[in-house]
Nucleic acid binder design. Sequence first.
DNA 1: CGTCTAGTTGAGTTGGTTCAAGTTCCGTGG
DNA 2: CCACGGAACTTGAACCAACTCAACTAGACG
Lengths: 281, 281
Amino acid sequence: MNTSLPTGISQLPEWFVHRGGIVPGAQPHWMSEALTLLGVAAEAWADACAVRVMRVRSGASLYPEGATTQSLYIVRHGAFKCLKTAEDGYEHVLGYAESGDVLGFEGLACDRQPLGVVALEDSSVLVLPFDGLDALRRQSPALDRALQRALSSQLTCAQEIAGMMAAVASEVRLARFLLWMSLRMAARGQSPRHFVLRMSRRDLASLLAVAHETVSRGFGLLAEWGYVKVDKRDVEILDMPGLRACTCSTRRDMNDPHHPRPTSAVTRPRKNAQQAEEALS
Amino acid sequence: MNTSLPTGISQLPEWFVHRGGIVPGAQPHWMSEALTLLGVAAEAWADACAVRVMRVRSGASLYPEGATTQSLYIVRHGAFKCLKTAEDGYEHVLGYAESGDVLGFEGLACDRQPLGVVALEDSSVLVLPFDGLDALRRQSPALDRALQRALSSQLTCAQEIAGMMAAVASEVRLARFLLWMSLRMAARGQSPRHFVLRMSRRDLASLLAVAHETVSRGFGLLAEWGYVKVDKRDVEILDMPGLRACTCSTRRDMNDPHHPRPTSAVTRPRKNAQQAEEALS
DNA sequence: CGTCTAGTTGAGTTGGTTCAAGTTCCGTGG
DNA sequence: CCACGGAACTTGAACCAACTCAACTAGACG
């Protein structure tokens, strides 16, 4: 099968860029890796179809907000944050992407990317230019389906992030985030109990729509309660059911008037009696 | 709870179901209407291709959370809210859809709908069953592209909603929502300055992740400042630039330390429209 | 006509923001 | 190599806005 990608795209010079830059012309990889990343069995034709790889150094942007939409990106390894800059200069983190996630789809409706994407560590992506993609999708139903599923996942992901921000209490938001990360880790076949956060406290705060100091305090609380052990960005979940219980209460205003309030002194878990006495003083 | 569905829905007259029910077997419409709703020029083949129409009465659910994913829905007229029910019973509104929006795509990745969809008023949708849809998309590149764009829009929409919740001050969240609605109205060719909200204060509060009383007070403030005129769900925007200025400050924690706060008396806009233009500097 | 829901308004409380000061860690350059 | 500077993170304290409870009005609906 002869797939013709846009001419010259695989022949870019392999120049090197200083720290914070992008290495655009890394060796091309094969489409079969894309299928694998998307969770589909590799197909014969894919081994012959070269895809451009883009390496992005930590802190560099894969594409800036407002960039003209040209490609879809499949994260190969590394991690990214998606952010929107308000007129007042505040950068709101609206998304988080890791290996297997698809980036850049938001830009299809409008022809400018509404969100910018920045690498949280040295990363690489597969680049699927929009023109030529339709042909590829028509050629391979498996790729087509996989992309659909990936995009559906991105939509769900965005909604899940919104779900985290909905909680009133900051520890609940944080607990939800940790559980969410845990699920993602599990889905990727990695340990759901022990992982390293790729985002800074600031980014995390922005994602959860709280102040970064509040994130620090939140980690402190969850650790104090024995749910997690936190050392900088290294997170270990000690009490998964406890953390999950913490996740529940979005807000107190519910139909059921007598509902346990995990934010109140009574229902806040306490690992020993000494702390309880202190709290009552 | 709500009124339960009648036992024999098929025995009912086709066009009548009691309040809160669904009319499953309405007259089929033509695919060309789908194309029109998606913003594409109608094509000849589409006039021959019948699509099922589903009518949903106000308060009824198009599909519940956890439903098996079978179809994509294009909103024909009316309005819907998308919501996720937490374990504690709290219903979080995560989305809002009107004419031309596409619903149900989240369910493609997992095969259960992560979100439920409820009609906010008597509405109707076009039903595109997933099986058969691939064939249709292959048949019509225009439909394919239109669906892609629509889904991309849904993704952007979810992120925009998250963007609203990010603001600290409740009036800012509300102002962002109103501006967002205004843009949507304009995109639909309707008045961007005067519209009727389809959501209750409670739903709106849930969408913005604040208490419903806070929404009331927020409307009161925006009205007091002369930005809008609000009568129940009827909203008229009086000072668009003012409202837009109100939208800005996500939080004070920024690089630029001296930034006006829209909640302070200083930044209160005068009724004079000319001064409102450049009140901030 | 009574009940229920939607919406508004008031008052007290609290938890998150904010400012401030401190520590730790990392990369850079002397 | 160490000193320095900056970024990331933590912790403390004060304030204030949003939550919460509560009471009330206005409509809708049977």
